[in-house]
Nucleic acid binder design. Structure first.
Lengths: 180, 180
DNA sequence: CGAAATGTGTAGCGATTGCTACATATACAT
DNA sequence: ATGTATATGTAGCAATCGCTACACATTTCG
């Protein structure tokens, strides 16, 4: 038995649920601690600082989302680019992933403000999503790497338009950019 | 002479510069007041509450950006869709507009967290940008409205990828989605 | 002139922030 | 048994948050 079999994973789990529900930017130590059933004192004790805690929490959530993505849409090629984009966007808009998208946009926002940790985590998330996305492209897609990157741009742009209530416009854009 | 010829415009100008430089989410009353050469006390006096202040400030900045957009790229049709997208993205990445893009992503982030005021302002900004964008499409573009919305999605997706250091991927996506 | 409206500085309130000092309880190793 | 590492509660600190009470000036208007 290792000496450090404390909760850590449990704590991350519960804090992750709290962040998914209440947002990342507004997450302060005491509410996080309450959600995890502990105290701010112990959070600092376990994670050294809030920055380190947030970093580890975001990595944890990124892993969680990757698992859920593969569970929701296994890596089977779609029938067409349009179907691929449509399926993914529908999935990300659903109740299971919308909270992740909110956190994602928080990460993006912090990254643009100059936070190197958010920048690094965001980069890793995009890279993972890119790999998952590439495996779902229709068989025989020309230049799958560039196509996947294009779809990544369209999906993220859709998230932005969704945020300000322009989902219809985003839908039309997808249909226009991936007609078949 | 109207009785209310106080600074208001000046104050908004200086606070806008501060927000463009230091970000929106981290903007609190005292730094904003210092930037405007007044006190938090007076900001509340003039704008009733911080929420109302931020709302008015964002509307002010949205108008400013619209003006600067028209000044930087007058509404002359581009030679091609690719040229249109490339020119605009290069402009938005430049020093004059990057600060606006940071604020824009802050607005998007707050809107996804449920802020109705940010949602409303973000929606208006997108609508204005959409109109400006439509006027720059090449002459004879098929279905200019849908095309402009598609380009909007691609541009916003590019901003997101830029935020996490994936500008190269975004560039390739643009070249792929708007080949000519 | 005098009253009323408009503007501004000083000081502070209660809440929250990340984080720490101190004491203490438990567990494990020697 | 005893000492040392691990774990945790209590209390609080200095800073910052949005906002307000109070006093005082200046201007406007009847």
């Amino acid at each position: 038995m290792p000496r450090k079999t404390i909760n850590r994973e449990d704590i991350l789990e519960k804090m992750g649920a709290h962040v998914l529900e209440h947002g990342l930017n507004t997450a302060s130590l005491r509410p996080l601690a309450q959600a995890a059933g502990t105290s701010d004192r112990m959070l600092i004790y376990h994670f050294e600082s809030k920055d380190a805690l947030i970093t580890e929490l975001l990595q944890f959530l990124a892993g969680r989302m990757a698992l859920q993505l593969e569970a929701a849409l296994p890596p089977e090629p779609s029938a067409s680019l349009n179907a691929c984009a449509t399926e993914i966007v529908a999935l990300l808009r659903g109740p299971a992933f919308k909270p992740y998208m909110r956190v994602w946009l928080d990460i993006v926002s912090s990254a643009t403000q100059g936070s190197t940790t958010h920048h690094a985590i965001g980069s890793a998330i995009v890279e993972g999503f890119f790999d998952w996305l590439q495996a779902r492209l229709p068989v025989g897609t020309d230049d799958p790497e560039t196509t996947a990157r294009a779809m990544l741009v369209v999906i993220d742009g859709t998230l932005v338009l969704d945020a300000v209530g322009q989902s219809d416009a985003a839908n039309r854009a997808i249909a226009h950019l991936f007609p078949i």
